[in-house]
């Protein structure tokens, strides 16, 4: 199964360490392969180091693709996290 969607990062610091950490922890709960794209760059959502090298700042558009048996669920969960601005205070 394959699902994908584009988002604009609205939280203050973009995909910084804490946000990336949240994303990795969430992604690890699913078996699907989850990839984040920023332009030509791509990163494995289960690797914090990968995510950090994307350097996705605020207002960056990213594309999330999920490939696997729980693709839809994982995309929904990630969408939630991004829309909630990574639960930043």
């Amino acid at each position: 199964m394959h699902s994908e969607k584009e988002f604009i990062l609205k939280n203050k610091l973009g995909l910084h360490v804490r946000a990336a950490a949240q994303l990795v922890k969430l992604a690890n709960r699913f078996s699907s392969q989850i990839t984040i794209y920023k332009g030509n760059l791509k990163a494995d959502a289960k690797s914090i180091l990968d995510l950090l090298t994307l350097a996705a700042a605020k207002n960056t558009t990213i594309k999330v693709t999920c490939q696997g048996s729980d693709a839809k669920d994982s995309l929904n969960a990630i969408e939630n996290l991004i829309k909630n601005e990574f639960h930043e205070v």
């Binding site: 950490a21 990795v24 922890k25 494995d44 289960k46 914090i48 180091l49 990968d50």
Partner: peptide, 13 residues
Amino acid sequence: LDTYHLILQDKRL
């Protein structure tokens, strides 16, 4: 520390 953990578990490294 959470970040440390994630890095230690990181596939890439």
